[in-house]
């Protein structure tokens, strides 16, 4: 496998993303809103005399939200990246080049993965700094960085992004517009949003064990989707069965 070819494909996608204002906005606005909006919510909570434990569980729930954000962001990018080729009918000339299916699939994966991870990390750093600033007086110590968010950002977020990208590959083979693809993709993520709601409402807590279980689940789904997407992303399949 020639990794530089995957990189050529990914950088081509970056140039296209840069030209599409809509992609840029969806990529940047939501993480930015979250990184600033969530600390503002927390700041209000500290002012209306909430017990420290409740603020902490809210901080944890918001940290967990980055797993969902990674999914949403990657799915947007991957849909554009793969469906874009399908809609422009550029897959045929692309597949005619001496590039293997794996190089192509890997190129498409990093094209969505890297910008998503970049934006999430930037957003989470802003989120952590602002949250610390507004909660330091109430909690009495710097809440971030901590083990939970490190676990989330370094393990769960990448796994969630990969899951979303692979799902997009599978959905792209059957669907022809970006919105439908995103909607179908979010169906699989409903359970994870359920977990988020349980966190916000304090039914479960965000400890390392729970995070570990979530990561294992993400990993297992990734593994299953990897086999399916690899089987779907074969040139014969793409040109004769993708509808």
């Amino acid at each position: 496998m020639k990794l530089w070819k995957s990189w050529v494909i990914a950088t081509k996608d970056f140039s296209i993303f840069r030209k599409k204002k809509r992609i840029l906005y969806t990529l940047i606005i939501l993480p930015l809103l979250i990184s600033i909006g969530l600390p503002i919510i927390i700041s209000f909570m500290t002012q209306i005399d909430n017990p420290t434990t409740e603020i902490i569980s809210l901080l944890n729930a918001f940290s967990y939200f980055y797993i969902i954000l990674a999914f949403i962001q990657s799915s947007t990018l991957a849909s554009y990246s793969i469906l874009g080729e399908k809609i422009e009918q550029s897959l045929e000339p692309l597949l005619a080049t001496p590039t293997t299916d794996s190089e192509l699939l890997f190129g498409k994966t990093i094209a969505s993965f890297l910008p998503c991870i970049g934006v999430i990390y930037a957003s989470s750093i802003i989120f952590m700094i602002l949250s610390d600033a507004v909660t330091y007086n109430t909690i009495g110590y710097l809440f971030f960085p901590n083990l939970s968010i490190a676990f989330i950002l370094l393990l769960a977020v990448p796994l969630s992004s990969i899951l979303s990208i692979q799902l997009s590959v599978i959905i792209s083979s059957r669907v022809n517009d970006v919105r439908t693809a995103n909607q179908l993709g979010s169906l699989l993520f409903i359970p994870f949003i359920g977990v988020y709601l349980l966190l916000v409402t304090n039914v479960i807590s965000l400890n390392i064990i729970n995070l570990f279980v979530i990561s294992i689940v993400l990993f297992l789904i990734d593994a299953v989707l990897f086999y399916i997407s690899k089987a779907i992303f074969r040139r014969d399949e793409i040109l004769t069965k993708w509808k």
Partner: peptide, 30 residues
């Protein structure tokens, strides 16, 4: 695929790239 050039039924160019970039991208892949 290295010694063959293909003009498919549908051109399949990238509308959001310039003519030059379209060709350069393929030059790299070839």
């Amino acid at each position: 695929r290295k010694i063959v050039g293909l003009l498919p039924e549908n051109v399949g160019l990238y509308d959001d790239l310039t003519a030059y970039k379209n060709l350069d991208f393929y030059g790299k892949l070839y």
